[in-house]
Design a protein around this nucleic acid. Sequence first.
RNA 1: GUGGGUAUAGCUCAGUUGGUUAGAGCACCAGAUUGUGGCUCUGGGGGUCGUGGGUUCGAGUCCCAUUACCCACCCCA
Length: 433
Amino acid sequence: MLTTRPRGTSDIIPGEVETWQYLEREVRRICSEYGYAEIRTPVFEHTELFLRGVGDTTDIVEKEMYTFIDRGDRSITLRPEGTASAVRAYLEDKLYAGPQPVKLFYTGPMFRYDRPQAGRFRQFHQFGAEVFGSHDPAVDAEVMAMTMDFYGRLALKGLELHINSVGCPACRPALRSKLREFFLPHIGALCPNCRDRFEKNPLRILDCKEGPCRKLGANAPATVDCLCEDCHSHFESVKKHLDLLDLPYQVNRRLVRGLDYYTHTAFEIMARDIGAQSSIGGGGRYNGLVETCGGPSTPGIGYALGMERIILAMKSQGITTPGISGPDVFVVTAGQAAASEAFRLLFKIRGSGISADKDYLNRSLKAQMKYAGKAGAKFVVIIGEEELAQGVARVRNMDSKEQVTVTSGEVVDYLADKVKYRHNTYLQEDTIK
RNA sequence: GUGGGUAUAGCUCAGUUGGUUAGAGCACCAGAUUGUGGCUCUGGGGGUCGUGGGUUCGAGUCCCAUUACCCACCCCA
């Protein structure tokens, strides 16, 4: 146990972390372009927030929360999702008092006590965004377009945007009773889970994957057939705005998201090639949530994307991301006499903004060269007795094998010049994805 | 919470019907005449065979339990 990480968690080690850093860069870039500001909230909250926010009949709350009592006898829960916290902060930090609408994004770890499998972990990471304060269907479209834009920037292909409207408090009671009416004669044929859902939330029966429930559900009244005037026109307008952007989507009448707070628009993005857990992102409108959490009636909409699943999809599509990058310069010495000079030079190089390193294992010149090559150093600076005596250093370009002699006074400037050039090309490579 | 599969070196895996000091490739380290990397060659370090019990003269190999991981169900990112 001492050397085993907790189940469903993972270490992101050098070689992998560069992919995460790249994704996080892209997240910040797109959010700034779309006008979303970052918010950082605690990874744990009072349990009540999630009970209220996420909904106490959802699977997340019923069986997946990491909840514990702290030393002050408070019930604390590791956040299973980001929206509830964003809503809490919106209220607590009085963001409603600022210019509206309020557009926020976050990235970070979420926690759900699930059995791990492909694409599912107990600690996983989401990038999410929320918009508070606007009813405009154009915002629904913006939010969906933004997710698809993000995937597109990562060069992901073949994703499907599924959308639906799950109604609002005005039309949902009618829908519920219609569904109950429909399923009542067949209640015996439903799976045990759905018999439970029949009472609590018959909407979710539509989402069931069990054969019999699925068959029955195919002919059941769908949410889109029972929408009130308001919901209907909202949904139509959302679709119109998606069309304006030429954004392909499919209306999925069965799409009912697992969180209770959704109203009007619900959407989900599916990837076909990442195993059984094919959803790589989803979201929807939650016009009642802020009020449920004790705030003024405020419309809201948001989404969350699963970082691990994005990485899975990228891998299975053969998309490469920046890897580990070696030092710009590696300082190699020959003989003890050069050691002091090399050590000083190393720090001078670093001081000019160039990444540099040297051997600390007392290795032979050959071994130092070998290491520099494996570490991916772009240049090697060699100092031996001969160079010391002449007041020079050899600078070797590891790619071209070209080696020049530079006076010790000019070494740093010489390297700075070469490396600056490399940095520019590196930045360009970095952007192509 | 339920089901199936797997567990031998840092990694990927061999390991005959149970039989002596458990192997390979890759990786790591060091050398190949005295100061130059990627290729090649030689050598070296590294394994309580997941853990605990059992059967047996003898278990990496058979049996039981346990843990971890993987995959799937439920559900979600």
